[in-house]
Amino acid sequence: MTYPDDRRYTKEHEWVRVEGDIGTVGITDHAQHELGDIVYVDTPKIGARVDQGKSLGSVESVKAVSEIYSPVSGEVTEVNGILAQSPEKLNQDPHGAAWLVKIRLSAAAEITNLMSAADYQSYVGAES
């Protein structure tokens, strides 16, 4: 698996891709693989305020629940509706169609706290 370098990564296996003041957030391929078959995604409501490193929602497999930690702070502007109907998309295309939410960044500088694709690649390499 190669991780796209148009975005930054967290140690908790989320990614964020920033365009202007909007960050698109998702979980990594490594995360979906560890979770197994994803059956439900609990996302925040539009307008919700989130903080970097704090819970953004959760993903569930049949027998586990995992928190999603927000890679950035800001306000949720969009939620990916596809996940409510087809949670399996998160297993199939975690870096593309199965993004989770879009967030209007309140502290753009925060993303410097996050890892590059190369760093993340070696991080998950070391972890597994």
Partner: peptide
């Protein structure tokens, strides 16, 4: 929907 239950959550 067992993820609501005590043995998981």
């Amino acid at each position: 929907l067992a993820t609501r239950e005590q043995h998981i959550r």
